[in-house]
Nucleic acid binder design. Structure first.
Length: 124
RNA sequence: ACGGUGGGGUAGGCAAUCGCUAGUCCCUUAAAAGAUUAGAGGAAAGUCCGGACACCACAGGGCAGGAUGCCUCCUAACAGGAGGGCGGGGUAACCCGACGGCAAGUGCAGCAGAGAGUAUACCGCCAAUCUUAACUUGUUAAGGUCGGUAAGGGUGAAAGGGUGCGGUAAGAGCGCACCGGGCGUCUGGUAACAGAGGUCGCAAGGUAAACCCCCUCCGGUGCAAGUGCAAAUAGGGAAUGAGAGACGGCCCGUCUCAGUGAAUUCCGGGUAGCAUGCUCGAGGCAUAUCGCGAGGUAUGUCCUAGUCAAAUGAUUGCCCACGACAGAAUCCGGCUUAUCGCCCCACCGUUUGU
RNA sequence: GGCGGCAUGGCCAAGUGGUUAAGGCAGAGGUUUGCAAAACCUUUAUCCUCAGUUCGACUCUGAGUGCCGCCU
């Protein structure tokens, strides 16, 4: 088995305001209990990703924690996802306390439904 | 042993895998990759005070506005801290206190109550006097008039010192003793203040977290401050001084703009963005020394986060006390608020034993 | 991150420390009417929370909670 890398450095992150404006206005949108996803075909060859959180969820420490969990979720699944798509993942309240395995299964199911997986992944 | 008081410390640990940010090394044109080191708190929080720092304003002084408020000291400074005084609470260890002035002036006090501020006479008590009645024939009782009174009752949150004795028609600091209070003197203390003896019959009560007065202090804005580089777009200035653009494969040609300045170059300002400010500091630790203490001084030693759609995480296993409040954003000194627990030291009370 | 403001019935709100906290809209009940509308009457308050000052606090002071705005 080939050892895959799970690195997610800042160069793969979506950071500037115009990119956010583009994906919010032109992108497709779907959601589940844990997060809301915006997608659009990548402007450049390589896809980028961003993690955001509404102020309604809570104070800054709570929001940062949610974004960390989202990033971990994306990082561990990044090889199953189409590489030429820009993502914005918006975190929701239940993500904070649910076990990681459950969140992961929900996320995979959501991607499968929207045909964003490169190949089939087994879920629990 | 149980209950309590004060102070200090700690804030799950270990291992594995996959990651994130920064520094250094290696390699390289440069990156990437690799190696290695470091990586949230006691409150990082609230932004309640005080500073540093930066920019703006500013001769000096005053007014206005704001803040502090027993005294002395510590400190860069403070509304913080230390020690002391006074008052209050607790059996005690100990804890709490916005604790200057109402005798500078102005204001406020609903309802109740006679009276709420140069105090007051409703009930009551008492003298004088008038009328009536009784008989004990100069006293008693009832009522009226005009005075005295602040003892008693009643109102209120609050009624112009308290207790006792004398005194009086009844009373009253009216007089006296003790307590409390004012004033000045002496003694102790740096001072707040305490003590002693003297003197004044007591002097317009409460409220300043009412306006205000007094004492001391304060210029404003906050790192999103400020500084540098700088795409784009619109407009400005300077120099040169006649062409520029569209149609078209090209020339001619036609149209549009142009000496009321085209076009080019430069300058200045400057948005997005980038960099800087940015972490070595009133710094930590150890020892010595001065001080009751907060702290000061000297010597040695250490370098310990620096992000910006915002780094410290995720998963798994084992152990136990079963993990609370909570996440740096310019930096320090405090205060306040939140917090599952655990450990250490000193002291107090009760009970029992020696 | 920094700076500033607000909180009074279901809604909009007034309120000098002092009687039972004004007023409007809405709701409920009643009067009136042949039935309605309009009108009139009645009804509804932990003054965001906890302390303190005061005889007495919506009001003054401190601490906390929630909401809103500005600086980019």
């Amino acid at each position: 088995m080939v050892q895959k890398r799970f690195s997610l450095p800042k160069s793969k992150r979506l950071l500037t305001a115009p990119e956010f404006d583009h994906i919010f206005s032109a992108g497709r949108r779907f959601e589940n209990k844990h997060c809301r996803v915006f997608v659009t075909p990548a402007v450049k060859s390589e896809g980028k990703v961003a993690f955001i959180c509404s102020k309604k969820v809570g104070i800054s420490a709570k929001r940062n924690s949610l974004k960390r969990r989202l990033r971990e979720l994306f990082r561990l699944n990044q090889h199953h996802i189409s590489p030429t798509i820009d993502f914005v993942l918006s975190a929701k309240q239940p993500l904070l306390n649910d076990p990681f395995q459950v969140v992961n299964d929900h996320f995979i199911a959501l991607l499968r439904k929207n045909k964003l997986l490169t190949h089939e992944v087994a879920t629990h």
